[in-house]
Amino acid sequence: MSGESVGRWRATYTPGSWLLLCGPAAAVVLEPADPSWSDLVETLWDEVLAAESIADVAARLAWYRIDSMPSFAAFFWGADGMRSLVRGAVRVVDADSGELVATGEGVQTWVETGLGDLRQVRVELPAERPDGVFPLPLVVGAVGVSAVFLDATDESALSSPQQAAPTVPFVEPTPEPDVTPEPVAAPEPDPAPEPMPLDEPEPTNRVEHELADTRMVSAPELFGDLDDADELDDGRVQAVFCAWGHPNPPGAGRCRVCEGLIAVQPPRSIPVPAVAVLRASSGATVEVVTSVLVGRAPAHDRARVEDPALLTVTSPSHDISRTHLEVFASGWDVGVTDLHSTNGTVLVSPDGSIRTMDPGETVGVELGTSLELADGISVLIDFPQ
């Protein structure tokens, strides 16, 4: 009795620190995961199970920024046999001949390789095999690995007898006695339906769906009242969260604080968090939540908000103005305004490019930008901690 198919291939693996996500027709091997992945592994595994082709696997990985990992591999069994995507230090080897069939070394994106009639491959990883481990079988699941063997031969295709439809025994019908049926009165005709009011729609499937029980939620409960695309008029922003609970702008793939991966999720409205940390070369630090005034004696009334934070820096020669500049948050973005300082402000971008701001000029800046003031003082606009 044959049962329902469980998988087209079987994986054999030795335990280790790399991550193997295996489904009936797709498998993905990822670099060692840190604890921030704990809530993301199941989501990624669901994506592997749902993939319909090697291109679909690649698209799903790209959605979670997995394609930016230095090394990974993906495999899919389709109508044209097994196909692979590899990047970085992953090697795919013919299990019979030992011949290298795919490698990602020196590749900026990934290499897609059709393995043709090849049915058994070894996936070699730059991982140490822990002492005392031995090969284990896997069809569908998520495990830590140090090496993987994929067997897609006909003999490896698995079916589950537990999933097979039960056999129903044949029972010969018992003959019924010959009984003359009594006459049955004709049913009364149904009363004519009352006409529907003109302002009510016909009961189509769409209308039935629209009239079904629905939980109505007001927009502010989910999103708040938007002032513009990024900032809320009540000091709130839209945010998504990594596995450690750090808030990030919607659409972010990696956490700006811990760099952990962020699962796809609807954004939530939260109070504006610290979008940056200012680190003066003199050692002082302050978070950027709304506005920070920087200078040798900054005055509160120069800011765009009522209660700005202040960052006081030393300037023995008084080359730095009392209130030299303002660093402020605009939604998730950071802006800098030179407050008509005496000796100006120089921006040094993360890529090393240099720009001198005009007096009174406001510009948006990247995190990692350094503000060069005077007297050898600089202020780094750093990532929040």
Rank of each mutant, 00 (worst) to 15 (best):
V277T: 03
S97P: 06
M69Y: 10
H300F: 14
V294S: 10
D96S: 05
V86Q: 00
G344A: 03
P201Q: 08
D199N: 06
M196E: 00
G376N: 02
R65L: 11
T204Y: 13
G88Y: 12
S341C: 09
D307I: 09
P273H: 09
V90Y: 14
A102L: 09
V111M: 14
S218L: 14
E188G: 12
G245T: 02
E372R: 04
P177C: 07
Q238F: 00
R60A: 01
D225N: 12
F149Y: 15
A280K: 08
V363T: 10
L125T: 04
L211E: 01
V179R: 11
D67C: 08
V275W: 03
T362C: 10
Y13K: 06
V28C: 05
A95W: 14
L373S: 02
V93P: 10
E47S: 05
I270C: 07
A243N: 02
F383D: 01
P70L: 05
E361H: 15
P197D: 00
P273V: 04
D319V: 01
A243P: 03
A33C: 08
E202T: 00
A62P: 15
E372C: 02
L61P: 09
G245V: 05
N343M: 15
R355M: 02
E176R: 07
T113V: 14
V90H: 13
L150A: 09
P169Y: 04
L310I: 01
I54E: 03
R87Q: 08
A62E: 15
D131F: 13
V148S: 12
S160L: 13
Q238W: 04
A276G: 05
V336N: 02
W18Y: 15
G144K: 08
V140W: 05
T285S: 11
W77F: 09
L125S: 08
E42Q: 13
I377W: 03
D199C: 02
P35K: 10
L125R: 12
S53G: 01
R268K: 07
P130T: 00
P249R: 09
L232R: 12
D213T: 08
V217G: 01
F170D: 00
F75N: 06
T356I: 12
V289S: 04
V327T: 01
S330K: 11
P166R: 10
A186G: 08
R129N: 02
T285R: 15
G23M: 08
H246A: 01
V288N: 10
L49G: 04
L19T: 12
A142E: 15
L19R: 12
V57R: 05
L61H: 06
A263P: 10
G81R: 10
A186W: 15
V289L: 09
W9S: 03
D67A: 03
S281A: 05
L21K: 11
P197N: 00
E202C: 03
L21H: 09
E306Q: 09
T314E: 11
V48G: 05
G295P: 07
T369H: 07
A303C: 08
W332D: 01
S156G: 02
P166F: 15
I381S: 05
S17V: 03
S291I: 11
D338F: 15
G352L: 04
T43L: 15
D382T: 01
E306C: 04
E182C: 04
A276C: 06
P195C: 06
H318W: 06
P126R: 07
S17L: 10
V92I: 13
P247D: 01
A27W: 13
P135Y: 08
L40G: 00
E176F: 13
V90Q: 10
E105F: 14
A26R: 04
E128T: 09
E155Y: 13
